[in-house]
Nucleic acid binder design. Structure first.
Lengths: 349, 349
DNA sequence: CTGAAAGCGCTTACAG
DNA sequence: CTGAAAGCGCTTACAG
């Protein structure tokens, strides 16, 4: 492998000048620069990254540590994110180092990777409120970006979708169709996005003058079984107490809701409207529902380029506070939503 | 961060001695070694891997390049493998660098990672016959291990399950139950494991005196839809030409076969026996089938430790030829297999 | 058993 | 505009 010294020898230049020419330093004579470039090409020169790293302190690698969960395999979004991020980083000449966290101490895996790989920064996903990983990285002044934030007002770089807006939009759609008793099958209560959506759900319901019943709100993983169990409980209530619409925080949940409605012979959208947020491949999944599912949607994929850019800026020295990217979800009106069914309650109104 | 120099200064030793003490060189005075260890601990010393790499030429990282396929997300095995490998490598103090390959030239991604990351070696999955990636890595004398081999007699390090044996065992079970017309829904025809299984399928069928009909053999991706389509075609044949048993190369395929049998009102196992190979979580999936699915099984997870060990040995300089690990699949007899149904053909025999 | 020295391949003040 | 020198933090012949 050719080195800077080799190129210098070839051209009668010092390695220092070759380095400057190749790295675009302005003071280099443009003719010299051309000769250097030509020779570098000819000799197939590739900078030795390790040597560069030793002197610059940068590694050109970023780490991502996955927390192992038994039901990870059911969740395709994580995989999308991994491949999407890897591709986005590749384009920017950065490598992704992957590790899995299997220990009780969530910070240990970060310490280990840091001591081993000299990654320049990290990408975190699924933060929790008071996330110890974030506290650790901030305390050590290590660059990182977060997919989703762990607080509405986050003071670190993050990418997030506008969770409040999508909750607001969904509720607005349903209330405008006349629904007043609306169930909400949400994600895990500890996660920020779920809290944000719930909060705005309450605000939007109040704005529409619709009551919120705690028994029509459920939290859990974004799985079909949680959707099914939640919907079954809500829909088994006596006629008149039963929701006429259900909002779901994920399409898998909606799948469970559909199944529960089917089992109870409740027709969608005639007797039950369903809206969900779709973070997988907008449309692809939802279109296959019968009837096609109305969604707010933004794919995981959309996060990858912004995340890569934010992290690279942060590593380059940008202050963490300003680095944020909030993406609005799109609305896809399909056939799972319709006017609220007439019932006694309405007559009384 | 403490360096060797710092420890040396602390103890009145040269960095060279500190290095030797920490790296277990035998000539170091054992008392000196103890003092060095104590000081290293106390100062929280962590070797700077980048510096080590610059001089040793080793990076302590290995790469894995995933080929993007549209239906990757449906396939949980890849994710299992990624997390399993990452964990296995972590235990051995090696990091996994991940990239995705989105280009037409399958070798380009390897060249790029090599020029950027100085990984010590690679892990390949799903090799094809005459795989250009393998040719490239061999030509450049780069260490790698392969999950599955691209030729029965491979001259590089690999982990594989014994595909011939599992085909042989499956056929033996079915023929011993009296089945003679056996369908085979296999993986993609280009892949070596599929070829190995098919080859042994033919051998085992011949050994049992059962005819092999080409129209009862189908190749494709390990998806439910391929299983369904294949089984539908086989089972729609007139009574007497229809298979009484189907062997599947994956549990997703078997799921499709079950669905086709259900749609055609063909009872399992009374009218149709089904056996599949299960490479996910042996048992977990198959047990949920109705009736529970008879399988040969070995999880992807089982491959991870052997793959990590083989690669590390190869990087350390072991000759490639001897490095192999062939794992036999286990047999799980469940309720999807039963005696062949009596029919005219049998009466005539 | 330990130290001084050279070197891995680069970058970057400091001179000129 | 270019070069000589120092240095990033380690390892490892070579001396002693």
């Amino acid at each position: 492998m050719a080195t800077l010294k080799d190129i210098g020898a070839e051209l009668g230049l010092s390695p220092a000048t070759v380095s400057r020419a190749l790295n675009g330093f302005p003071e280099v004579n443009s003719e010299t620069r051309e000769r250097v470039r030509e020779a570098a090409d000819r000799l197939g020169y590739r900078p030795n990254r390790v040597a560069q790293r030793l002197v610059t302190g940068r590694s050109g690698m970023v780490g991502m540590i996955l927390r192992m969960r038994p039901d990870m395999r059911e969740d395709p979004t994580l995989f999308d994110m991994l491949t999407g991020l890897s591709a986005a980083l590749s384009l920017r000449d950065v490598d992704l180092v992957l590790a899995v966290d299997q220990e009780t101490d969530p910070v240990a895996a970060y310490e280990r990777m840091l001591s081993r790989s000299l990654v320049d920064g990290f990408i975190l996903a699924a933060p929790e409120p008071d996330d110890p990983r974030i506290a650790y990285l901030q305390a050590h002044d290590l660059p990182f970006v977060v997919h989703g934030r762990h607080a509405f007002q986050a003071d670190y770089p993050f990418y997030d979708i506008d969770n409040r807006k999508l909750a607001r939009d969904s509720v607005a759609l349903l209330t405008s169709l006349g629904h007043r008793r609306i169930g909400f099958v949400n994600g895990e209560a500890e996660l920020t996005y779920a809290q944000d959506r719930l909060r705005e759900f309450r605000v939007a319901m109040a704005a529409a003058g619709a009551p919120v019943e705690d028994s029509l709100i459920s939290h859990g993983r974004l799985t079909e079984s949680h959707g099914y169990a939640s919907a079954l409980a809500m829909l088994s209530r006596p006629e008149g107490l039963r929701p006429t619409a259900i909002l779901c925080s994920g399409t898998m949940l909606a799948k469970g809701v559909y199944r529960a409605a089917h089992d109870l012979a409740i027709a969608i959208p005639q007797a039950l409207s369903v809206v969900a947020h779709d973070d997988i491949w907008p449309g692809l999944e939802a279109d296959r529902f019968d009837p096609p599912l109305t969604t707010t949607a933004k794919s995981m994929r959309a996060a990858c380029d912004p995340l890569a850019d934010l992290l690279i800026q942060r590593i380059a020295g940008a202050a963490p506070a300003g680095l944020r990217h909030i993406e609005e979800a799109d609305f896809f009106l399909r056939e799972s939503t319709g006017p609220a069914p007439p019932r006694e309650g309405d007559a009384r109104r």
